[in-house]
């Protein structure tokens, strides 16, 4: 198909080349980003776990959506036990210093800041939200500890939709 395009005109071919170049650049950038940001902080609870609440690749790309869905569920519905709570993110991913004191998750080099600084994406969760687990209410981490984790908001919606279809 590419061949056909290049026959039909120079411009599409050039565009394709540009696109390819861009994708390569992007991949290279991502590879580097992975180099910088491919870590859970060693001292964090997350470091001992196989996976995040969703597959890592999925979380890398969609964590903001996932958090936002849970946000409305929590604020308006009062549900804090689904596996996508921001408070759960902080509880699991926060690093600890030599004295076992938690380090703010948005501090330089910590879990959130490492990637967000690298990609220059402003993060304003922590304008209001706590950056270390302190005075937590019920959240994902506790729900796991008590074996009461609820599925994510999207999964619940999917399940509900599947249920209604089945009927």
């Amino acid at each position: 198909m590419n061949h056909n395009q290049s026959k039909s005109g120079v411009r599409p071919a050039a565009a394709v080349q540009w696109l390819l170049a861009l994708v390569c650049l992007g991949l290279a950038g991502m590879a580097q980003a992975t180099g910088v940001g491919d870590f859970v902080v060693d001292s964090s609870r997350a470091a001992q776990l196989e996976n995040c609440v969703e597959p890592t690749e999925y979380m890398r790309r969609n964590h903001m959506e996932v958090i936002r869905h849970q946000r409305d569920t929590t604020v308006y519905g009062g549900i804090r036990s689904t596996k996508h709570s921001l408070s759960g993110c902080v509880g699991c991913h926060v690093g600890y210093d030599a004295d076992h004191k938690p380090v703010a998750i948005n501090d330089k080099g910590q879990f959130c800041a490492a990637c967000h600084n690298y990609t220059a994406v402003k993060l304003n969760c922590f304008d209001c939200h706590a950056t270390i687990p302190e005075g937590e209410a019920w959240n994902q981490v506790m729900a796991v500890d008590h074996g009461e984790l609820l599925p994510g908001v999207e999964e619940q919606a999917d399940a509900a939709a599947a249920g209604s279809r089945a009927q």
Binding site: G91, C128, A130, A137, N139
Partner: peptide
């Protein structure tokens, strides 16, 4: 500016 807050009680400037 609010530097210290509890997880259960988010709080931020301007709200």
């Amino acid at each position: 500016q609010v530097d210290q807050k509890l997880t259960r009680a988010p709080r931020g400037m301007g709200c």
